[in-house]
């Protein structure tokens, strides 16, 4: 009696973009995961003889520097692979933290409504009205530079987007008939939120997360560039780019190559996020 579900085999919106995005990101993740084992990086290791060598140079120890070396003779590729780890780790950790805070606040605001909604959303408005990078600089200056602090700072600056999406979904879902149906079965608030409302948030939140992770990685690099992010001993991309700034005239590669790598990752994440959003949740277009 059930209507057979025909094979849904039509090319769907943005397949190419999604495949491209995932491929690029996979390359970065693999590089970040196994790269530092292949190309050892020691932050206190300085070799003045190999300072500021351009890309494709054979170094004094016989190794080959594809991306050249920096001002203390460190191999730039090894440094970047290490940096990729930090950027991706910071990005993921931030999203996890910001997502948890944001979704919790958004669900509470959307589901319960009333004064709680008013208070939480005004808080979000204030947060949005304040330029997030300024806020991040302010908090970083207070807490001092460390990887954990960067994560906290960026999470504080980014929870609002998640809260808005979750609130929107909660508002849309809580009055749906199937939620009322669970209510009439005797389901309590906790059950309704976790079983009915939260699952409805998953897809849009993941889409938003993909868009946001690019912003977060960029923000981390910006903070580190300004010296407010990861400490100088932790070679995130921002730190490397900042270090190369003084040598732009003679050794362009130190800042440029990590910059290109960063830009390419952020663009790919943006493309992927847009494609996912178009496919799964076109209503989020304004975000």
């Amino acid at each position: 009696m059930v209507a057979p579900v025909a094979a849904r085999r039509r090319t769907r919106a943005g397949s190419a973009r999604i495949r491209f995005g995932f491929a690029v990101i996979a390359v970065y993740v693999v590089a970040a995961a196994i790269g530092p084992w292949l190309f050892r990086y020691n932050p206190v290791d300085t070799r003045t003889a190999d300072r500021l060598k351009p890309p494709f140079t054979r170094l004094s120890d016989g190794s080959f520097a594809i991306f050249g070396t920096d001002q203390v003779g460190q191999d730039l590729l090894a440094q970047m692979l290490q940096g990729a780890r930090i950027s991706i780790a910071v990005g993921l950790a931030t999203l996890l933290l910001a997502g948890t805070i944001g979704v919790t606040i958004g669900l509470a605001a959307g589901y319960f409504g009333g004064w709680l909604d008013g208070v939480l959303m005004r808080l979000a408005d204030i947060q949005l009205a304040f330029p997030s990078i300024l806020l991040a600089i302010f908090i970083a200056a207070l807490l001092g530079p460390s990887v954990v602090n960067v994560v906290i700072v960026l999470a504080v600056a980014n929870w609002v987007t998640f809260a808005r999406v979750a609130r929107g979904q909660a508002l849309a879902t809580r009055r749906r008939e199937f939620v009322d149906a669970s209510r009439t079965l005797g389901a309590g608030t906790w059950r309704l939120v976790t079983r009915c409302v939260l699952p409805a948030c998953v897809a849009p939140v993941l889409v938003v997360a993909t868009v946001e992770i690019g912003h977060v990685i960029l923000a981390e690099a910006s903070l580190s560039f300004l010296g407010l992010g990861t400490p100088a001993s932790t070679p995130s991309w921002g730190v490397t780019i900042a270090n190369g700034r003084n040598y732009l005239a003679d050794a362009w590669w130190i800042s440029t190559i990590p910059g290109i790598a960063l830009a390419f990752l952020v663009i790919s994440l943006g493309v992927l996020g847009d494609a996912l959003r178009d496919r799964y949740d076109p209503r989020l277009r304004s975000l």
């Binding site: 008939e177 389901a187 699952p199």
Partner: peptide, 26 residues
């Protein structure tokens, strides 16, 4: 209660078994 809208009143993310058995979990 039986609801009006056969589309909106069933959780789209749950199987029929989960929908019916939800009552017994509660």
């Amino acid at each position: 209660m039986i609801f009006q809208d056969p589309y909106a009143s069933l959780n789209p993310r749950a199987t029929v078994e989960q929908i019916i058995a939800e009552a017994w979990q509660i």
